[in-house]
């Protein structure tokens, strides 16, 4: 058995699969990170992803255009995220309850609408062509990581750009600092004249766009088919990655990679018929997330934004 594992081909395939599984999670988690920095904890990430996955699939299925599919998926994700933002910012409701309700609502809605589509398709199970891979010349030939990182599709490459952009945005721009200040102390931010509510809505918009993109990518970039609850808890996983990655873009992507690797390892072990409960690998990131939470709390670093999850009411102290 170990001979099958300790060779280059195994690791090349393993890394490639890890990256593949990590990409949708990374998109959703990066969106959620921005949202949490602005003080909105959106449990409804699953709803954003699932609605994006469905709408992306449906539009591509009807029009045959992947671009329209991705745009539709992102728009739908944004709609649900903005709905969450409206309920939490304007109506000041409990963010967890809204998220849970949205998750259930979207799970029902997508299952229902998909059933309607399947009934109309009569016979053939609806499916779409997935995004083509675009190998980057030279870099693809790198041993081990070449195939994993540079033999992918356009959305994966866009993720690399997004990470760099987010690092720059959060650390080097006024907007990034404003975002963080609103999550930490909205009243202070308001006092110095920052448009608190507008920035919160923009953060939620970004969260929805990324969640929708992650969901749409899952279906249009990898699976090619939609099925009931196709995201199956990936939104919750992304939520853990935000904490596990300590709300830093690079940290989150490494966390997503780790999660992808854990999943990839589980599939490979199962395929090889390894006689041990492989659930350990997929469960491990959650245990580590809890440990990260404890460490951050004890060391008092990288703690939650101070106003995370709390509605900001201008007229009340």
């Amino acid at each position: 058995m170990w001979n099958e594992i300790w060779n280059l081909a195994f690791f090349t395939a393993f890394f490639s699969a890890s990256v593949r599984l990590a990409v949708p999670l990374a998109y959703a988690a990066l969106g959620e990170m921005v949202s949490q920095k602005a003080g909105i904890l959106n449990i409804g990430l699953e709803a954003n992803m699932l609605s994006g996955a469905f709408m992306g699939f449906a539009v591509t299925y009807w029009t045959g255009s992947l671009l329209l599919g991705f745009l539709a998926g992102m728009t739908t994700g944004a709609c649900f995220s903005l709905l969450h933002a409206f309920f939490s910012i304007y109506l000041r409701q409990n963010q967890n309850v809204i998220g849970t309700a949205l998750n259930l609502f979207v799970l029902g809605l997508t299952s229902y609408l998909f059933q309607v589509i399947v009934n109309q398709a009569s016979g053939a199970y609806p499916q779409v062509d997935i995004l083509p891979t675009i190998p980057i010349p030279l870099l693809t030939n790198l041993p081990l990581v070449g195939d994993a990182l540079f033999n992918k599709d356009i959305i994966t490459y866009l993720l690399y750009i997004l990470i760099v952009a987010l690092v720059w945005f959060l650390n080097r721009t006024m907007w990034g600092l404003s975002l963080v200040s609103i999550g930490e102390n909205p009243r202070a931010a308001d006092t110095v004249g920052l448009p608190v509510f507008r920035i919160k809505y923009l953060a939620a918009l970004f969260n929805g766009l990324m969640g929708g993109l992650g969901g749409a990518y899952l279906v249009l970039g990898q699976l090619g088919v939609f099925s009931e609850n196709v995201t199956s808890g990936r939104g919750y996983i992304a939520l853990s990655l935000v904490v596990f990655g300590r709300r830093k873009p690079v940290g989150i992507c490494l966390a997503a990679l780790f999660m992808g690797a854990a999943n990839a390892l589980q599939f490979r072990m199962q395929a090889l018929g390894v006689d041990m409960p492989v659930q350990m690998f997929t469960g491990l990131p959650y245990v580590l997330t809890v440990i990260v939470l404890i460490i951050s709390a004890v060391k008092r670093t990288d703690a939650d934004p101070a106003a995370l999850g709390k509605p900001y009411v201008r007229t009340m102290r």
Binding site: L91, L107, G108, S111, Y112
Partner: peptide, 20 residues
């Protein structure tokens, strides 16, 4: 499709949350 139950429960909760 019995998924309409989830839709309706989610919808009811959202409407209740509109109460404020």
């Amino acid at each position: 499709p019995n998924s309409i139950v989830s839709i309706i429960i989610g919808f009811i909760v959202l409407m209740i949350l509109c109460g404020s």
